[in-house]
């Protein structure tokens, strides 16, 4: 167990930053190019996780537990969000019989 903290000393923080940035933008590109609303929703989860990873890494490098608590909260919010979001998707599927976001064009005044 004692060897694991050593990893932090060997890998620079920047690498973690780059990793989480990569994940974030993979998620974002997914959000932008995919048309299936469920995939889009999943990509949003990837983005959230990228942020979580960033928080945890910075928290570890600073030796502070607050970042991890934040991650805990983000997870809680994500769980709530997913439940509500999926309920909305189910309702929309019931009404529109599709999950293609190109066909969701009701969002205007």
């Amino acid at each position: 167990m004692n060897t694991i903290p050593e990893l932090i000393r060997t890998v620079p923080l920047q690498h973690y930053l780059v990793l989480s940035t990569c994940l974030f933008f993979i998620g974002m590109i997914g959000v932008l190019v995919r048309r299936n609303i469920i995939i889009v929703f999943m990509c949003i989860e990837i983005m959230l996780n990228a942020v979580n990873l960033l928080m945890v890494s910075v928290s570890a490098y600073r030796g502070e537990a607050s970042g991890q608590i934040m991650v805990l909260f983000i997870m809680a919010v994500a769980a709530a969000e997913v439940s509500v979001g999926l309920a909305i998707i189910v309702m929309m599927y019931k009404n529109l019989k599709t999950t293609n976001i190109d066909l969701f064009n009701q969002l205007k005044g």
């Binding site: 920047q14 940035t21 990569c22 590109i29 600073r62 030796g63």
Partner: peptide, 28 residues
């Protein structure tokens, strides 16, 4: 998306954390 990624990437690549030494150990 790619543009945004590049921008963030280049911004983070050079970022430095102020205190590097103060790691909390595995109990944290």
């Amino acid at each position: 998306g790619a543009c945004l990624f590049l921008v963030f990437f280049s911004a983070f690549r050079t970022s430095v954390l102020a205190s590097h030494e103060n790691t909390g150990g595995y109990q944290q």
